[in-house]
Design a protein around this nucleic acid. Structure first.
Length: 424
RNA sequence: AGAGAAGUGACAGAGUGGUCGAAUGUACCGGUCUUGAAAACCGGCGUACCGCAAGGUACCGGGGGUUCGAAUCCCUCCUUCUCUGCCA
C-alpha cells in the first residue's frame, strides 16, 4: 500500500496518479488519509502522556509499599485506576482510527508511473512492438477447440465431469506438450539466473494481503470453506510472500525466483465466445518469475524481465506483440505493466500470455519487506514479477499456428522436451 | 488425531508480580595494544510510533483477561519438540 509519509510529502503527485487511474474522488480520499493520520498522531500522543503518568503512579506505589506508607499508596492506587480508565478509552479510539486508516489505505491502488499512457480501457494501451507479418492459415484451418478434439489431446467434457467448466483434462500428447512447456520455461529461467522454488498453492489471509489480492480481489479467489485459506490465483502470491516480514541484505539483491504452479481463478461473470476453449480457465498452469530489487535498479530489472519473456516467445516462434498498459488497465498493485500477447491465427485474435510488472514499494510496504542500506538504515525494497509464461494460451497459439494438413508441428526449441515433432 | 513439554533480542540462555526493554555468554561493529593478525582490555550493539530535541509510549510467539503494576498469573489461538496413532 501507499506510504502515508509519501502521500503527505507529494500530495499533488498522488492525486494526479489516482486521477489518471480514473479514481475521480482521489483528492478527497487522500485528504481523508492525511486527516486520519493526523488524528492518529494526536490521539497516540495523548494516550502516551496518560500512560506515562499512570506508569509513574504505579512505580511510586511500589516505592511507597516498600517504605511501609500504606495509606499513601492506597491513595495513589485510586488515582492510578482513574488514569487507567481514561487510557483505555483513548486506546479504543486509537484502535478505531488505525483500523479505519488501514482499511482506507488497503483500498487505494498503486499510482501509475510517469510514462504510463493515459486511458481507461484496453484500447488505450500502447503497442510497443508487433511482429512484421501475421501467419496466414488456409480456409479449412481449425480453432484450437476443434484441434484438440481432432487429435484427442485435451478434453473439456471430462473436466466438466470431474470438476466443472474451465477445468480441462490434458491427455496424451496434450499432457506431454504441457509438461514440455513447463520444463522449457523453467530451464530458460534457470539459465537467466532465477532460483527455482516450489511453493504451496494454498495461502493464508496474511499472504493474500501481502501481495494485494486481499481485500481487493477476494471474489476472484477460491476459498476453502473449512479454513481461512485460499487457492492461489498466481504463484506471485506465495513466492513474493516468502520474503514477508524480512530484512534482507542489500548485497543479496536482486533476489530472483522462478516457480511453476497451477493457478486458480473464479473468473466470476466472464463467459461467452471470447472465453472459449483454452482462452480462459478456472485452473491453469503458469511459470512465474519474481524479483526483489533495490529501488534504484527496479526499472532496469523490469526491462531484463521483459526481455526474458520476449526471448521465450521468439524461441517458440510465436507471433507476438508487446503492450504498455494504460493507467486504467493497470493491476491494483502495479505502477507499470507490460503485456505480451501472442497471435492465435485461427481465432484471428491476440491472446494475453504474460504480464510483467513493477510494484515499486507498494507490495513491500504491505509485506514489510526491507533491506539494510549502506548506512544500516532499513528501506523498503521493490518487488517485480512476470508470467514466463502462462500455459493455456501458449498452447492454443501453438496448436492453431502450427497446424498443417498432416498434423501440428512442434517448434524446434521444444522438441528436445516433447520428444515428438508433430501431433497427428 | 491423542498425551506431555516448550516458545525471551542475530544465536545461546537467565529471569515466576514492582527501577526488566530485559542479566550473562557468543557473534557483530569501533577503539587501545601489535610490523600484521590473534589474544586481552575499553566502548557500542533490538524494533516500531510520537517529538526539532530532551524524552515518552508500545513490544519477551499472536490475541484477550486479572492487577495500581505482568516476560512473570489466567483464558484462547498458533508454532516447535517428544511419545502414541494414521498415512504418501
Amino acid at each position: 500500500m501507499l506510504l502515508v509519509s509519501e502521500i503527505i510529502a507529494n500530495k499533488d503527485v498522488y492525486t494526479a496518479g489516482l486521477l489518471k487511474r480514473g479514481i475521480e474522488n482521489a483528492e478527497m480520499l487522500l485528504d481523508e488519509i492525511i486527516s486520519l493520520d493526523s488524528d492518529r498522531k494526536s490521539t497516540q500522543t495523548k494516550q502516551d502522556e496518560l500512560l506515562a503518568e499512570a506508569n509513574n503512579a504505579a512505580k511510586s506505589i511500589g516505592a511507597l509499599m516498600k517504605q511501609g506508607k500504606k495509606e499513601e499508596a492506597e491513595a495513589v492506587k485510586i488515582k492510578s485506576s482513574e488514569l487507567k480508565a481514561r487510557t483505555k478509552e483513548l486506546g479504543t479510539k486509537l484502535e478505531e482510527i488505525k483500523a479505519d486508516l488501514q482499511n482506507k489505505l488497503y483500498q487505494i491502488p498503486n499510482i501509475p508511473n510517469k510514462d504510463v499512457p493515459t486511458g481507461q480501457t484496453e484500447e488505450d494501451n500502447e503497442v510497443l512492438f508487433t511482429v512484421d507479418s501475421l501467419p496466414q492459415l488456409t480456409d479449412d484451418s481449425l480453432a484450437h477447440w476443434d484441434l484438440i478434439k481432432k487429435y484427442d489431446i485435451i478434453d473439456f467434457d471430462l473436466g466438466i465431469k470431474i470438476t466443472g467448466a474451465g477445468f480441462p483434462v490434458y491427455k496424451g500428447k496434450g499432457a506431454k506438450l504441457q509438461r514440455a512447456l513447463v520444463n522449457f520455461f523453467l530451464d530458460q529461467a534457470e539459465e537467466a539466473g532465477y532460483n527455482e522454488v516450489q511453493p504451496p498453492i494454498v495461502i493464508n489471509e496474511a499472504s493474500g494481503y501481502g501481495t494485494g489480492q486481499l481485500p481487493d480481489k477476494e471474489g476472484q479467489m477460491y476459498q476453502l470453506t473449512n479454513s481461512d485459506l485460499y487457492l492461489i490465483p498466481t504463484a506471485e502470491v506465495p513466492i513474493t510472500n516468502l520474503y514477508r516480514d524480512q530484512i534482507v541484505d542489500e548485497k543479496d539483491l536482486p533476489i530472483k525466483h522462478v516457480g511453476f504452479t497451477p493457478c486458480f481463478r473464479r473468473e466470476a461473470g466472464s463467459w461467452g465466445a471470447h472465453v472459449r476453449g483454452l482462452n480462459r480457465l478456472h485452473q491453469f498452469d503458469k511459470v512465474e518469475i519474481v524479483q526483489i530489487e533495490h529501488p534504484d535498479k527496479s526499472f532496469e530489472t523490469l526491462d531484463t524481465m521483459v526481455k526474458h519473456v520476449e526471448s521465450l516467445l521468439k524461441k517458440l516462434e510465436l507471433p507476438y506483440r508487446l503492450l504498455k498498459l494504460c493507467a486504467g488497465d493497470l493491476g491494483f498493485t502495479s505502477c507499470i505493466t507490460y503485456d505480451f500477447e501472442v497471435y492465435s491465427a485461427a481465432q484471428k485474435k491476440w491472446l494475453e500470455v504474460s504480464s510483467v510488472s513493477n510494484f515499486k514499494n507498494y507490495q513491500a510496504n504491505r509485506l514489510k519487506l526491507r533491506y539494510k542500506d549502506s548506512n544500516n538504515k532499513k528501506q523498503l525494497a521493490h518487488t517485480l514479477n512476470g508470467s514466463a509464461l502462462a500455459l493455456p494460451r501458449i498452447m492454443a497459439a501453438l496448436l492453431e499456428n502450427g497446424q498443417t494438413a498432416d498434423g501440428i508441428n512442434i517448434p524446434l526449441a521444444l522438441r528436445p522436451y516433447t520428444r515428438f515433432d508433430k501431433i497427428s
